[in-house]
Simulated assay, not measured.
Amino acid sequence: MTSELTLPRPIVTPPKSPDAQPGADRQLRTRLLLFVCFLVTAFTLIPVVMMVLVAFQSDPESMAATPSFWPSSWHPENFARVFELVPVGRYLLNTVIFAAGTTLLETATAALAAYAFGRIRFRGRNVIFAIYLATLMIPSQVTLIPQFVLVARLHWVDTWWGMIIPHAFTALGVFLLRQFFLGIPGEYEEAARIDGANRWQSFTRIILPLAVPAVATLAVFKFISQWNNLLWPLVVSNTDATRTAAVGLRVFQDSNGTQWNLLLAAATVTTVPLIILFFLTQRWFVRGITLSGLGGR
């Protein structure tokens, strides 16, 4: 008999890939990123927290030479006083009408124009779109006086027509929706045309349902921008019948002086609906980044 000597095989460890990162390093990077996001969020919320705290202060405390942002005694009656001094409820209703009216009209006009520029081929389409897009480089302050003169000649000053119509058409909304329409495959519309659908039916039944995320994103951004719009309502509106919340805060400061607790209480009341709207529609803000025209379509 012969005995064989069996030697143990050496354990060969495969080389680590240079791209592979240990789990500990990955967790550390995640924690650092979360910490940076927390710091940015905290610095962003500091003015909002200060506004709410000063709104609960008493009159002498808010007007003191040395400011103290944490109230020594809480005064929730400041909010009731604001509603007694100015018609805050009316201002909020006017803001909803102004923002909703401009949002609906701009969404409709932008969708129609974007469909024409993105899905219909006609001579000079790119040139006309480039000229239309170039209007974004013109500041709104430049066209303020011509718009007001036109509104005055139409006798629309201090009316909802004068408030809403000039802001119902913007090139930015057309640009965003056109970029989305270009990404929709043309086979869908061709199949609808073969089945007998005309242009309007193809737009309303095929293109528009597929573009709901883009249209919703445009509507959210437009509503929020018009809610905070101050310049145009300040020029056109002269009475409380059409004054928005932004203009109402300015009127409140002119009529009641700089009472910081009451002024910031009014600002808090007008900001709460916008915060609620943000939490309800925050996912559309994320989608708005991808629909901003930087996707390379």
Rank of each mutant, 00 (worst) to 15 (best):
residue 160 W to G: 12
residue 288 G to S: 03
residue 126 N to R: 11
residue 77 E to N: 12
residue 253 Q to S: 04
residue 8 P to M: 04
residue 82 V to Q: 00
residue 235 V to K: 07
residue 142 V to Y: 09
residue 45 L to G: 00
residue 268 T to E: 13
residue 45 L to A: 03
residue 206 I to M: 03
residue 249 L to S: 03
residue 213 P to I: 03
residue 25 D to V: 15
residue 283 R to H: 03
residue 146 P to S: 10
residue 88 V to G: 09
residue 68 S to L: 07
residue 131 I to Y: 11
residue 110 A to T: 02
residue 213 P to Y: 05
residue 124 G to I: 00
residue 223 F to R: 07
residue 86 V to Q: 13
residue 7 L to T: 11
residue 224 I to L: 06
residue 191 A to G: 12
residue 64 A to C: 12
residue 57 Q to I: 00
residue 41 T to V: 12
residue 94 N to V: 11
residue 101 G to I: 14
residue 210 L to P: 01
residue 212 V to K: 00
residue 179 Q to R: 11
residue 121 R to K: 07
residue 35 F to D: 14
residue 122 F to G: 06
residue 163 M to L: 12
residue 224 I to E: 09
residue 10 P to H: 08
residue 141 Q to V: 03
residue 165 I to T: 08
residue 202 S to E: 01
residue 293 G to D: 06
residue 102 T to E: 11
residue 11 I to W: 15
residue 241 A to C: 07
residue 92 L to E: 08
residue 140 S to V: 14
residue 10 P to R: 05
residue 198 N to S: 12
residue 206 I to C: 02
residue 167 H to D: 00
residue 83 F to M: 10
residue 223 F to H: 08
residue 47 P to C: 03
residue 23 G to H: 14
residue 50 M to P: 08
residue 77 E to W: 07
residue 146 P to D: 12
residue 235 V to S: 13
residue 60 P to E: 09
residue 142 V to Q: 08
residue 37 C to Y: 02
residue 52 V to S: 03
residue 222 K to M: 11
residue 115 Y to E: 02
residue 10 P to W: 02
residue 268 T to G: 13
residue 277 L to D: 10
residue 158 D to G: 05
residue 144 L to N: 06
residue 190 E to H: 06
residue 83 F to H: 10
residue 142 V to A: 09
residue 190 E to K: 07
residue 179 Q to H: 10
residue 292 S to D: 00
residue 50 M to A: 00
residue 132 Y to M: 05
residue 103 T to V: 11
residue 200 W to P: 00
residue 42 A to C: 02
residue 208 L to C: 01
residue 280 L to G: 07
residue 35 F to W: 15
residue 10 P to D: 07
residue 227 W to R: 09
residue 33 L to C: 12
